[in-house]
Amino acid sequence: MNRRENLKLLFTGSLASGLLLTNCTPEDKQADLSPKIAGGTPGGRIEAEIERDQQLLSETFFTQEERKKLDILVDIIMPADDESGSATEAGVPDFIEFMMKDSPSYQTPMRGGMMWLDSYGNDHYGKTFLELSENERMEIIDLIAWPDKASPEIKGAVNFFNILRNLTATGFFTTEMGFNYLGYKGNVANAWDGVPKDVMQKHGVELPEKYLPYYLKPEERGTVAVWDDEGNLIG
């Protein structure tokens, strides 16, 4: 029994307080914090963080219809090609769903933007976005996807598409598929020994002569440092 339940019972007056407070075993005081839904951030989380991730993961923001639109839209922004899969294959819609709850300021522009697609479709084609043909959809997307050319009257829809582009790109490039497509080589243990020589040559830069004797030599990474009294490394 936790403190809050104790207090609730105390104030509803259903039981004697002394009994309640002394009856708590140490096990009762430890709330069960093990995550029930997978997908929360691992590593050194405090209780409030575990609770929040669980809460956000248990909620659903997008309606089924919005989710269908989202799947179409993210694959327009990040389609599959010869080198990698698409945004939906990379799980981008789940990421965007999570971000709607993690950063609630996204909610109104995203929901409103998807509604705008329907309104525009109804006004100009007599169909909602999902009912449109692929060509018709792309005619609308082309109105809002190019901010420098877009009509000022539909700036709100352009802003929506900017947000969607940001989230789709980030959602894609932060997956394993995205890392591979990008060619990111890091996040592994290594011994940094500077920019590869051919790369420096190509860019016309070089290491300053003056520091060459002092830079870290990877082969000395195992040797405990020893200095003389003047601070010169001597071993």
Partner: peptide, 22 residues
């Protein structure tokens, strides 16, 4: 390991490493 966040790739975070209040 239960405290470790080092070397975790971005996709292990549902917010892909975005900041939070905490």
């Amino acid at each position: 390991d239960e405290d470790r966040t080092q070397l975790r790739p971005s996709w292990e975070s549902p917010r892909r490493g975005a900041g939070t209040r905490i």
